[in-house]
């Protein structure tokens, strides 16, 4: 990073300048198109609902969403709902990633354990986790705990499987090298296996960002008194599509933001 700052500006040849210009131009075209697409969707949506092609009762409309959003913000409810869902998601995300990685380390460590648990992991992975919903609600009650457990169920196994595969994919010669330098299993784990898996770990984080939102919203559908998932279900039940759309929109922004943070972390590591 430091090096890049030190780089002096050199005079490029004309063809190189043209090349840079073209890349810059492409970037601008892509960005403008993206913004225009968004504006077009919003504009057409508003237009169709106002002239009556689409019934705003079923489809809501941008202006109604803004209005709902305004009411929510002024009543202070919005932050509570966002806070609850964000808290559940982050908690589930962190616990699942952590536990899943620990489990993967244990399975890497003992081949026997790996073989014993293999069929269970396969079945748990294949099982649609939503099927566990009623059980989770009965065991953990209505509210945050159940939702976080649901979120963990969704993320945990996939984390374990991905991390274990990454650990096992480590070059055999590298392990041989560590052994020939006299390394014990702990040293092989901490000096080779774990740092070697950083790239895959970040991919798992990216997957888990999406998965943990799925888990949390699913958990909130099953049992909740507050949160964005709750708003969506409630709004659906009482036919308040404005509410459903508003909550969905906020969800899009939050999930996108979290993904963006992970992508930034990834960029830092790749440097």
């Amino acid at each position: 990073m430091k090096k890049r700052k030190k780089e002096v500006k050199i005079d490029f040849s004309i063809s190189h300048k043209q090349y840079l210009k073209k890349i810059k131009k492409d970037k601008i075209i892509i960005l403008t198109s993206q913004i225009l697409l968004l504006l077009a969707i919003i504009g057409l949506w508003e237009l169709f609902t106002s002239v009556g092609v689409l019934d705003p009762f079923f489809f809501s409309s941008p202006s109604r969403i803004v209005k709902t959003l305004g009411e929510f913000i002024s009543s202070g409810e919005l932050l509570t709902h966002i806070g609850i869902t964000l808290y559940e998601t982050l908690l589930g995300f962190v616990i699942a990633t952590f536990l899943g990685t620990i489990l993967a380390i244990l399975l890497w460590w003992s081949e026997k354990l790996r073989k014993i648990l293999d069929p269970y992991i396969v079945v748990l992975n294949a099982l649609p986790k939503i099927a566990l919903g009623p059980m989770i609600v009965i065991w953990f009650g209505i509210g945050t705990t159940s939702i976080v457990v649901m979120c963990i169920m969704i993320c945990l196994i996939i984390t374990t499987i991905s991390m274990l595969n990454s650990f096992l994919a480590c070059d055999k010669d590298k392990i041989q090298l560590m052994k020939s330098l006299g390394a014990n299993k702990f040293q092989i784990l901490f000096k080779l296996i774990l740092p070697n898996a950083i790239g895959d770990f970040i991919s798992v984080l990216k997957i888990n960002v999406g998965m943990s939102w799925v888990g949390t919203i699913m958990g909130e559908y099953l049992s909740s008194k507050a949160g964005l998932g709750y708003l969506i279900v409630y709004g659906g039940q009482v036919f308040k599509l404005d509410l459903v759309m508003t909550a969905t929109l906020i969800l899009c922004l939050l999930a996108g933001g979290m993904y963006f943070i992970v992508a930034r972390i990834e960029a830092r590591f790749k440097r």
Binding site: D171, D173, K174, Q176, L177, K179, S180, L181, G182
Partner: peptide, 14 residues
Amino acid sequence: TSKIGYMFQKDHLF
């Protein structure tokens, strides 16, 4: 093992 130096086909630098 610790008295031995091993060099592989690839350099295996981390």
